[in-house]
Design a binder for these strands. Structure first.
Length: 157
DNA sequence: GCCAACGTTGGC
DNA sequence: GCCAACGTTGGC
């Protein structure tokens, strides 16, 4: 299958691209997604080898700060069964887990982050979900074209 | 910190 | 099954 592209949001004061860079093997599990639409993507659509834009939200400046790729496909987020975790979900059945996650590995931290503001002016991103009003999904599809535009502007292609 | 947009919950 | 209330997200 052709490579698919995604954008994953994170609040850098919770988990930033530098945290990912410092993680063992620069790899982390993308836990804590508690939205059904995003869950469906994590469980069913996102495949090993897919590429990811790493986005910092709720911070100044909001920006795509680098790229990663998927090293492990959707599997149950074990935090949902851990009563001490803030991601605990008492209603999730271990036989039929409600929440899923993937593992991603850092590829490249951009020298220059691509800010949300800059992206609004880039040709080719007009249809990008991130730029649409009310697009709150924390895991979003990105088209091959959008991927290229972002990386080109970051000087990474 | 504010608040609009949106998703989820729960009473009926 | 509807929908008001509530909680969360995330740009500003």
């Amino acid at each position: 299958m052709a490579t698919q592209y995604w954008l994953m949001k994170t609040e850098p004061n919770v988990f930033s691209i530098d945290d990912l860079n410092k993680s063992p093997k620069k790899t982390t599990c993308w836990e804590g997604v508690r939205n059904y639409q995003a869950r469906n993507l994590l469980r069913d659509k996102i495949k090993k080898g897919d590429k990811v834009l790493f986005y910092h939200s709720r911070v100044d400046p909001m920006a795509v700060v680098g790229t990663a790729h998927v090293v492990k496909e959707g599997y149950p987020d074990y935090h949902q069964f851990d009563a001490k975790s803030k991601y605990y979900d008492a209603k999730s059945d271990p036989e039929n887990p409600r929440w899923f996650m993937v593992d991603i590995k850092l590829d490249k931290k951009f020298k220059t982050p691509i800010t949300l503001k800059a992206m609004r002016d880039m040709k080719g991103l007009e249809e990008m979900m991130l730029l649409k009003k009310g697009a709150r999904l924390s895991v979003q599809p990105v088209s091959a074209k959008e991927w290229k535009v972002v990386l080109k502007n970051a000087g990474e292609i």
